[in-house]
Design a protein around this nucleic acid. Structure first.
Lengths: 444, 444
DNA sequence: TTGTAAGCGTTATCAC
DNA sequence: GTGATAACGCTTACAA
């Protein structure tokens, strides 16, 4: 019993067992008390050993004296006779092959093996092939952790999403991951999950894991100081939201212009009383500002009564917030929603309350998620070019990572989101008149 | 110009610059050719230096002779006079603080610092506080890469999703990430993106990054050999799909039973001609089998004509596949869809072709995503308990990771998905009769 | 209570 | 062409 409980210690950090690597400890039972060398000649042990060897394990013969030794090392250092206490054999977890193992197998040095596997021309073809073959046989997988330690690069970037239920963020995540994978980068991922502390925590976690850079949809567009500080420390960060003058690199949809275009479109459709569903809990937002600007440009009043602030980004949240802006004395005839999910909530609200869309209530969303074009009433929206966003943000991040001698000055790339007019906002969708809208033909 | 191109070599792997760490190289212009010591006394340089010191950088005065030295080291070793070639100052990226830096600052050894920061009782309280303070001042972040190298644990697990547009997978991803983060684990994430090779590639990438374990929604439920092989090598793997007897640990929804329940529900509603939308491109699936079993149990024929195989998991895919199974001579009166997304496609198809749901066509989905309850006709479906899935799969994976002396035998935990009856399948939803259905009241 | 030395798996330098 | 050696930043064993 006691012997078994000692076994797990092998292979643990700090436990030295140069002879124990990839080895099988044969702990014979009922062989009596005898010196180690005699145990090795025991036929049962030898038979076992030859089987073990076939599996590319070394054989390590041992018999653990019950109380005297605390560790296997202490045991194996002892010169005295051993008392067997445990029956049978114990198979150690086979450890991963290292360069050193390939070197031992082929007779070359570790350095030669390293160069050969990386295809250096300084190594002879014969040696290279031999080494490659040995690596394959041993199922060698290079240890990137060790590589990172010396190269000071983890070839990993961190991705923080503030919300994963939003299809736009997840499809961005997908495109980003694929783009990075094709360049040999891994993606460490975290959700800030609606809490700023979690965002900070995720960043801290990423930093301690030595990510080479960070792509982030920040939770609060106005709280970016922690990210600016990272940048000052020469840590590459790219924001995925279209904020202006952040002092950080930005690749994102121009939310102000998008919201402005969407609201303007409602104005152009003849609406004079236009409400909004936005996310305001962390202060103002670009989308809110764009909405307000479009109203002001059209000479329309901005009425807080019909601007609903949603707490969470969901259909349910959209329905509830619609309730709050529609029950007033002068409800809006059109609503700008800062995301398609909220717009689907608004659509649902309209159905529950038997308002026809767009005749009694026009609705426009933001993002152009798949469900938007397949909704009961196909949703007008602002197209969010996710592929472009992923492509450009990854390209910029890698530029920052590869920047030699300090980060270049921050650059803001705002992508334009196209207005897509469908049934939910246009009494006659085909007559869509503003901002060269894309008419979606599938929505008939 | 040339000097600038040399600078990037600092801080690179293999470039030794013991004196260059956290230092600012002042490369003065137009100071003429003079010995280094005279440069140091130059007032412009001194003013610069004092500013630099405020930022906790050391100052390193240098002037690089244009052609003679290839590296900064070679340059600084030289004793001769320098010719300035580059104007201004160059700020080196400040490097992250190490234990050694804290040690140097406090006067303790690195070992003492390491123990102190980890709160060892062997260190005096005074020393501990001093060291903690210094660590804070230097903005010390422990290097997990180095830690991993010695502990042989990365405290990171890999998560592979076969599809990220599926809301079920993303909400699972979120829950999994949060559960793992609370235990101190990071999540490396990848999408297999519909290709088995990408799945293999992602696994390889994860292995080389030394993840401690793997959570995976495999692309093809029947191709699991590569995962079994990992397990044989003592690598912890947990499948997130409810397959039976895989020889690998499983925590997943019982898809067979779920599909069976769903189909059975349609039978109970009086349907005799029940079609299906499934994903069959990689061979049969548990959902398909459950559907078939329910039909057979009810004594109904299984007709390939009304079993549509969707190629991609999308509303569009659902619509197209519906086209193919509905245009036959004897179209189904009810359809079991292997996911809510496909069911939304079916619903959309019904709307396009003016069939009333559920009177002319009953539809049931699988997953219970948010949109299901908010669809035009709220969808009946099988609830996919994502929270439970995340909780249990993470718990099991950590069990495997912490298992000492080899992995325990694989265990299969199938979670039960509850039937949720809404309008899309029940002529009178309130009369839902089978399998203790949950009646969703919001769907009025 | 603290310091010293070795080692985790890899890469870069330099000598042969 | 190939091998020895010293880093990378950290933890552990053991000596002081």
């Amino acid at each position: 019993m006691r012997a078994v409980s000692l076994v797990p210690a092998w292979g643990k950090a700090g436990c030295r067992r140069p002879a124990g690597r990839n080895s099988l400890a044969v702990i014979p039972s009922s062989l009596g008390s005898r010196p180690l060398e005699r145990l090795c000649r025991c036929s049962a042990v030898q038979a076992c050993s030859s089987v073990i060897t076939q599996y590319r394990y070394y054989t390590l013969i041992a018999s653990i004296f019950c109380f005297e030794y605390e560790t296997f090392d202490a045991c194996s250092r002892s010169a005295g006779p051993f008392s067997p206490i445990c029956a049978g054999t114990l198979l150690m977890a086979r450890q991963k092959a290292r360069l050193k193992d390939i070197a031992a197998k082929t007779g070359y040095g570790t350095n030669t093996v390293s160069l050969a596997l990386r295809g250096s021309t300084r190594i002879s073809a014969a040696a290279r092939d031999l080494i490659r073959k040995a690596a394959l046989e041993l199922d060698y997988v290079p240890n990137n952790i060790a590589k990172s330690l010396v190269s000071r690069r983890s070839n990993t970037v961190g991705l923080i999403l503030h919300e994963i239920t939003n299809p736009i963020l997840t499809s961005a995540a997908k495109e980003i991951q694929l783009a990075l994978a094709s360049r040999g980068y891994g993606v460490l991922f975290a959700t800030s999950n609606g809490s700023f502390d979690e965002e900070l925590h995720a960043i801290e976690m990423f930093r301690s894991r030595m990510v080479d850079g960070l792509l982030i949809y920040p939770l609060v567009h106005s709280r970016l100081d922690h990210l600016r500080r990272l940048r000052e420390q020469n840590f590459p960060v790219v924001l995925l939201v279209g904020v202006q003058d952040s002092g950080i690199d930005v690749v994102g949809i121009d939310e102000f212009v998008g919201a402005h275009d969407a609201t303007r479109h409602l104005v152009d459709q003849g609406h004079r009383r236009i409400g909004a569903l936005v996310m305001l809990q962390y202060g103002t937002s670009q989308k809110h500002d764009g909405y307000v600007a479009a109203l002001e440009a059209a000479g329309l009043p901005v009425d807080p009564q019909i601007i609903g602030s949603c707490l969470n980004h969901s259909i349910e949240g959209g329905i509830q917030t619609m309730d709050s802006i529609m029950h007033g004395p002068d409800p809006p005839t059109a609503v700008f929603c800062s995301s398609d999910i909220l717009a689907l909530g608004a659509l649902r609200w309209a159905r529950i309350h038997r308002r026809t869309v767009p005749a009694e209530l026009a609705i426009i969303g933001f993002d152009d998620i798949e469900s938007a074009s397949h909704a009961v009433t196909p949703l007008s929206t602002i197209n969010n070019n996710v592929d472009e966003l992923a492509r450009r943000s990854v390209a910029r991040l890698l530029e920052l990572i590869d920047a030699e001698g300090g980060l270049p000055p921050p650059r803001t790339s705002l992508l334009h989101g196209d207005l897509v007019v469908r049934e939910s906002s246009a009494t006659d969708a085909a007559a869509g008149s503003t901002a060269t809208p894309t008419i979606d033909t599938r929505s008939s």
